[in-house]
Design a protein around this nucleic acid. Sequence first.
DNA 1: CGGGCCTTTGACTGGTTTCAACTTCTGTGG
DNA 2: CCACAGAAGTTGAAACCAGTCAAAGGCCCG
Lengths: 191, 191
Amino acid sequence: MLNQFFNHINKFTEISEEEFTEIGTYFEVRKYGKKVVLMEAGSLCNTHYFVLKGCLQMYFTNEKGAEQTLQFALENWWLTDNLAFRQQRKSDFCIQAVENSKVLSIDFKNQELLLEKFPKLEKYFRNVFEKAYGAAQMRVKYIFDYSKEEMYFTFRDQYPEFIQRVPQYLIASFLGLTPEYLSEIKSKRLS
Amino acid sequence: MLNQFFNHINKFTEISEEEFTEIGTYFEVRKYGKKVVLMEAGSLCNTHYFVLKGCLQMYFTNEKGAEQTLQFALENWWLTDNLAFRQQRKSDFCIQAVENSKVLSIDFKNQELLLEKFPKLEKYFRNVFEKAYGAAQMRVKYIFDYSKEEMYFTFRDQYPEFIQRVPQYLIASFLGLTPEYLSEIKSKRLS
DNA sequence: CGGGCCTTTGACTGGTTTCAACTTCTGTGG
DNA sequence: CCACAGAAGTTGAAACCAGTCAAAGGCCCG
């Protein structure tokens, strides 16, 4: 299963199996059951997660008490509150398992030590963040460009498996609309 | 003036002045007048910009013909359509100078060569992207969490100089509301 | 089989946009 | 240095997208 992480690293930089064995020692493998909270809003953001299997969700709770999802992380995605992690501050967000999940976790200190020991990994993380940043730019574009209805249908067509895996109220929370309105949208065009 | 770029790199990694001199040869210094377009939507995204002085804006035009700003870049910010740049595809966005600006530009090929020659810079860009990604996460949070009115006042209080430098219709375009409504919001509480 | 969570439905509300007209600012040429 | 045209900002009325609230129905899992 760690094999998968090895391959992901090697998509962006080159490391040997020996190196990987040592790299692995900086991480912990953890399993979380569905709905378990990995990171609490308001507590020190000290952990960076890599999803081996399953699905994580990062969200915050707005004034009205509704949960707003910022991101999902499926297999081979990294997830944390990056600003808080960098600055070792309290996180603004919660991270929760959407499904039973298996993740790699590394704390801030270890990530720093890891990058000192293996500068090659700077290239790996540069690529990971560059890509994630690009994706975040596109997310902002979609939010502004599309109506809620268009957001849903675009999302559904682009990530059909997501619709299968994730309950509808979480899709609504990710797209930024209410479950009621999402329900209404779906009934308008049944296609 | 390049001094400033040298300092910025050294905030995140360590390079000597000799190295910097060579690094500099990979870039071009360019000046753009106010309102000049640096990058066209629909054309190959081949350039990464670093703002030495001035202000750039990245935007797209929605179906109704309104321009929606994705990001501003002030001094010491990098700007491009990152997904398109990575994949060497057509950009979804335009980049335009908001003020008379002085920028460093590097094309994709040169950036690759630069990073091969100076692997130390992977660390620099890792940090740049990590930070930018974190900022983009927060942006999404604000968009969902705040009403348009709250967005404006929060933005105004957090970046007062921005309000000075940038015309109001661009602020509106960045915050995702109409100039008319922004005008109304301002008149509601004159403080 | 039952309870709680998820989804659906409908009526009402309001924040925000749209459109159009008017006013103010800005910069460029005479 | 003034005049004027175009750009930017303001104001108000009408329309609408999407949220809120409440209640009923469906479904999963113990």
